[in-house]
Amino acid sequence: MSNRAPVIYSTQIKPEWLDYNNHMNVAYYVLIFDLAGTELVSQLGLSVEVTKATDISWMVLENHITYNAEVVLDQPVEVRLQLLDHDEKRLHLYFELYAKNSDGTEYLSSTLEQMAMCVDLKARRGCAFPAEIAANIQQVADRQAQLAMPENIGRKIGIRKK
């Protein structure tokens, strides 16, 4: 068993994602993490098609993002996802965005800690995950049970005083 969370999403940095500093703009990091989250819930059984048929979906409650190192045009990246915790209607998730260098090495570019919730779109309120999806979430939790808790979970933003 690997001591790293599994890759949930991969892509390459697109020209329209660059800013005037000639690296990826901060907004597109969130887009990549959102695409990875969409892939996760789809794999759990809560795809767009299921949402359209049932009016059950997911929404993000909170994000904490770090920008560790820049990524540039055409650079391949992959997102690793760890399920930190869950209950009947919430997921505590941790994403890591790794950028690939041309020599095959990689580096941690960004992280995202997220709280997401299952929602009933008719009521516009949180609800329990359907039983089949809850079972799939538990399977992910069981597979990832031996992964270490990431060091920067629950970070607080502020200026460190000397």
Results as ranks from 00 to 15, higher is better:
89 K>C: 01
133 I>A: 00
46 L>Y: 08
70 E>Y: 09
61 L>N: 11
5 A>W: 09
30 V>Y: 03
136 N>F: 09
138 Q>A: 14
6 P>I: 02
41 V>G: 02
121 L>V: 11
142 D>L: 09
148 A>R: 04
84 L>A: 01
46 L>R: 10
121 L>A: 07
84 L>M: 12
151 E>C: 05
160 R>W: 03
133 I>E: 02
66 T>Q: 13
34 D>G: 13
81 L>F: 10
26 V>L: 04
29 Y>I: 06
88 E>H: 14
146 Q>M: 11
143 R>E: 11
106 E>H: 06
157 I>M: 01
63 N>R: 14
56 I>M: 11
137 I>W: 06
152 N>Q: 10
56 I>D: 00
140 V>C: 05
1 M>Y: 07
37 G>V: 01
126 G>N: 10
138 Q>R: 08
106 E>S: 13
5 A>M: 06
78 E>C: 02
91 L>K: 03
97 L>S: 10
78 E>P: 04
142 D>V: 15
73 L>Q: 14
72 V>D: 09
128 A>K: 15
162 K>N: 11
98 Y>P: 02
50 V>L: 14
160 R>M: 14
153 I>C: 09
31 L>G: 03
97 L>D: 10
48 V>P: 04
135 A>S: 15
7 V>P: 06
78 E>M: 05
84 L>I: 15
42 S>V: 04
55 D>C: 12
112 L>D: 15
124 R>S: 13
52 K>R: 14
136 N>L: 08
89 K>A: 00
125 R>F: 04
37 G>C: 04
24 M>I: 13
84 L>P: 01
28 Y>R: 00
97 L>H: 07
154 G>D: 00
43 Q>G: 00
52 K>T: 06
3 N>P: 08
130 P>K: 04
77 V>E: 03
102 S>D: 15
100 K>V: 13
108 L>M: 08
88 E>A: 10
114 Q>D: 11
160 R>Y: 09
155 R>K: 10
111 T>K: 08
67 Y>Q: 04
138 Q>L: 10
42 S>Y: 01
64 H>V: 01
111 T>F: 03
145 A>G: 09
33 F>E: 04
159 I>W: 05
114 Q>G: 07
144 Q>P: 03
123 A>E: 14
48 V>R: 06
153 I>G: 00
3 N>V: 04
71 V>Y: 01
35 L>K: 13
83 L>S: 06
65 I>D: 10
77 V>T: 13
43 Q>W: 10
71 V>P: 02
115 M>D: 00
96 E>D: 12
149 M>L: 13
132 E>C: 10
95 F>H: 14
72 V>A: 03
141 A>G: 07
97 L>N: 08
133 I>Y: 10
126 G>K: 12
129 F>I: 05
79 V>T: 11
103 D>F: 00
11 T>K: 04
153 I>H: 02
152 N>D: 09
47 S>G: 03
62 E>N: 14
143 R>T: 13
40 L>N: 02
48 V>L: 15
126 G>F: 02
157 I>D: 00
80 R>V: 08
29 Y>M: 10
93 L>Y: 06
139 Q>I: 15
138 Q>E: 15
22 N>K: 11
